[in-house]
């Protein structure tokens, strides 16, 4: 043996009897569930029927085209991205207000956060949807859009917002989710700002920087590094939370899945498939964000 030989492993990782028993138990439970569905409920599985709602063979054009569930997934993704952006803007403003010197701004932001965190999401969405559809849309002139105008009926618009005819529907869902998630992002931002020591504020003040300049040049750049990981987590949470806007008929994945389940009567297949779609989407983002975080941790030493 010499000192340059590869080191022996410290400890062997082996599957123990406990692992075998646990794995056996899990397999048995799954097998039992399948048995119950197949033989006791006498359920006829028909996966092809629901798969056709992902990809469908169009005989007229002789091509495979995406169907409802893929469109729903894309709408969910668009909803999640746009409402995260909007919620982040809300969160940065409110998160700053939470800590600022002005009493009324502090009260407003505190009330916003507490109100939303202490109402069930569904109840909030019902109340708020009524409010935006009856008040905000007429106010910003969204009630009489012309969907066939060249501004809306083009490829870029479709990529960004989906079907122009569903634009109001999309925006309503987006605003609901953004206002809802904004409360959580507010708390993330507040914690991020708070984590920057008061020495940084004092150093900024001591060289005569204005409050705004300290915030923009000193505090926020440092806070953002701390905010990004929980913000990425919140984005994934938002993908899952977005399912609740199906209740106000926003045409995202869960809403369309309800329709698919109803027309096909293939309830198990539809929801297992939709669950898998959510899982893949969320797990993918969790994986990517995890890798990005590792990399930035390494580059920051």
């Amino acid at each position: 043996m010499d000192r340059n030989s590869p080191p022996p492993p410290l400890r062997k990782r082996r599957i123990t009897y406990v692992d075998l028993v646990l794995i056996g138990l899990v397999v048995a439970m799954i097998a039992y569930a399948v048995y119950r569905v197949n033989d006791v409920l006498v359920y006829n599985w028909n996966w092809d029927r629901v798969f056709s709602f992902i990809l469908r063979y169009d005989e007229e054009t002789d091509r495979w085209v995406t169907n409802l569930l893929v469109q729903g997934l894309l709408t969910t993704l668009r909803l999640a991205i746009w409402s995260t952006i909007l919620a982040t803007i809300i969160g940065v403003i409110m998160g700053y207000w939470r800590r600022c010197n002005n009493l009324s701004l502090r009260i407003i932001s505190r009330a916003y956060v507490e109100l939303i965190r202490n109402i069930p999401p569904i109840v909030f969405i019902f109340i708020f949807y009524f409010f935006i559809s009856s008040q905000i849309f007429p106010m910003i002139g969204l009630s009489n859009l012309r969907h066939d105008s060249p501004y809306m009926d083009n490829a870029l618009f479709r990529i960004l917002f989906g079907d122009p005819r569903l634009f109001e529907n999309f925006i309503a869902g987006m605003i609901c989710l953004a206002v809802f998630e904004g409360a959580y992002i507010t708390e993330i931002v507040r914690a991020g700002i708070q984590s920057i020591g008061k020495g940084q504020w004092e150093a900024g003040r001591a060289i005569g920087l204005s409050h705004f300049n300290i915030l923009r040049d000193v505090i926020l750049p440092q806070a953002i590094r701390k905010i990004l990981p929980p913000l990425a987590g919140q984005f994934i949470t938002l993908i899952k939370d977005s399912a609740i806007v199906s209740l106000i008929s926003i045409q995202e994945l869960t809403f369309l899945a309800t329709e698919v389940a109803a027309t096909t009567t293939k309830v198990f297949e539809t929801w297992i498939l939709v669950g898998a779609m959510y899982f893949v989407l969320c797990y993918f983002f969790a994986y990517v964000f995890g890798k990005l975080e590792q990399r930035s941790a390494r580059s920051n030493g």
């Binding site: 020495g199 940084q200 004092e202 150093a203 900024g204 001591a206 060289i207 000193v218 750049p221 440092q222 590094r225």
Partner: peptide, 13 residues
Amino acid sequence: VGMVFQSFNLFPH
């Protein structure tokens, strides 16, 4: 008025 702190308080970023 310049000020120098015990804990430096440089901007780390």
